[in-house]
Amino acid sequence: MTVAEVRPYLDQVEERLHDAVAAYPGLVERLGRAALDAGGKRTRPLLIHLVTDERERALRCSVAIELIHTATLVHDDLIDRAPLRRGRPTAWRTDGDEAARATGDYLFARGFAELADAGDLDGVRILADACLALVRGEALQRRQRNRPDTTIDAYLERIALKTGKLFEAACLLGSRDPGLGYFGLNLGIAFQIADDVLDCSGDTLETGKIAGTDLREGTPTLPLLLAAQEDDTVRAALAGGPVAGVLLRVAATGALERSLEIAHGYARQARESIDGAVHRDELEGLANAVVERRR
């Protein structure tokens, strides 16, 4: 399946996303639309498309999960006080905390409404379970902040909850097949590790985010934890100390390369779990692409 073949589907997802947000005009509709217009890779809708041939269900579930995902980003930016998302000012930065909080809530509600209006109670359950995992993951992140002694296993548990479970939900929503859900979970973990590497090494113009955000916020990611095991300056910075020049020290430890090796391991587990999927080759290609991306 080529980009040209999947583009009409993703264009239809975009149209329906904006229709869903436009249901109740006003402040939250405007900010919700701005959050959607900031773009994104739309990886989860693509996953849903690749695991089912039922187009209407794929569209409905894609809109639902992308609204939920966007809601989490609006709330994350508020909690983290992030001024930019994909190179654009965030909702709290332009309109304040209360407006951002309400916008995230609105997007959550509209996402679940997409499934509820179609009577898809199983889909509601799948997405609700994923949202519960997201909350648990966020709580773990708060607990681990400025903790360079966070174990690798604890980090992996956190990203499985915060990222992996929503990828799993995408595959389950599209296929209702637990085997493909396992593919999505491993894919999501690989995706997040690669994202954390980019935070240490990516260019702001490419990623749309300011490099070193995790270090400044004290969020213990895999490359930072691996580097902190070898470099006391990195360890001190992750604990809340000075961060100037620390990303160069992280790179010097080889932590970025080791992190990507682990990400490739999860991508490999994802590929090996595919059995009888509608678009097996495309799913395998996606598993490679999430690790090798540059933004």
Rank of each mutant, 00 (worst) to 15 (best):
M1P: 11
V3R: 14
E5G: 08
E5I: 13
R7G: 04
R7L: 15
L10Y: 05
D11I: 07
E15M: 11
R16P: 00
L17V: 01
H18L: 15
V21F: 00
A23G: 02
A23Q: 08
P25V: 11
E29L: 04
L31P: 00
G32L: 01
A34F: 09
L36V: 05
L36P: 02
G39A: 11
K41H: 10
T43L: 15
R44G: 03
P45W: 00
P45A: 08
L46N: 04
L47V: 12
D53E: 15
R57C: 03
V63C: 01
H69S: 02
T70S: 13
D77L: 13
I79Q: 08
I79Y: 01
D80L: 09
A82T: 11
L84T: 07
R86T: 13
E98T: 14
R101V: 11
T103C: 09
G104Q: 02
Y106L: 10
L107M: 15
G111C: 05
F112Y: 15
E114T: 11
G119I: 00
G123T: 12
G123H: 10
L127A: 06
V135P: 03
V135Y: 05
R136I: 06
R136D: 12
A139D: 07
R142N: 05
Q144L: 15
R147D: 13
D149W: 05
D153Y: 06
A154S: 14
L156R: 14
L156G: 06
R158C: 14
A160T: 15
K162C: 10
K165Q: 14
F167H: 11
A169N: 01
A169D: 04
L172E: 04
L173Y: 06
S175T: 13
D177I: 03
L185Y: 05
L187F: 10
I189G: 01
I193V: 14
A194Q: 06
V197L: 04
G202P: 10
D203H: 08
D203N: 13
T204W: 14
L205Q: 12
T207H: 04
G208H: 12
G212T: 02
T213K: 02
L215V: 04
L215H: 03
R216H: 14
E217I: 03
E217C: 07
T219G: 02
P220Y: 13
T221Y: 07
P223I: 09
A228H: 06
E230R: 15
D232A: 15
T233M: 08
R235P: 09
A239I: 10
V246T: 13
L247S: 07
A252T: 01
E257P: 08
S259I: 00
L260N: 09
G265M: 12
A270V: 11
E272K: 14
S273K: 08
S273R: 15
S273D: 05
I274T: 09
D275T: 14
G276P: 02
A277L: 05
L283C: 11
A289N: 03
V291L: 09
E292R: 14
R293A: 09
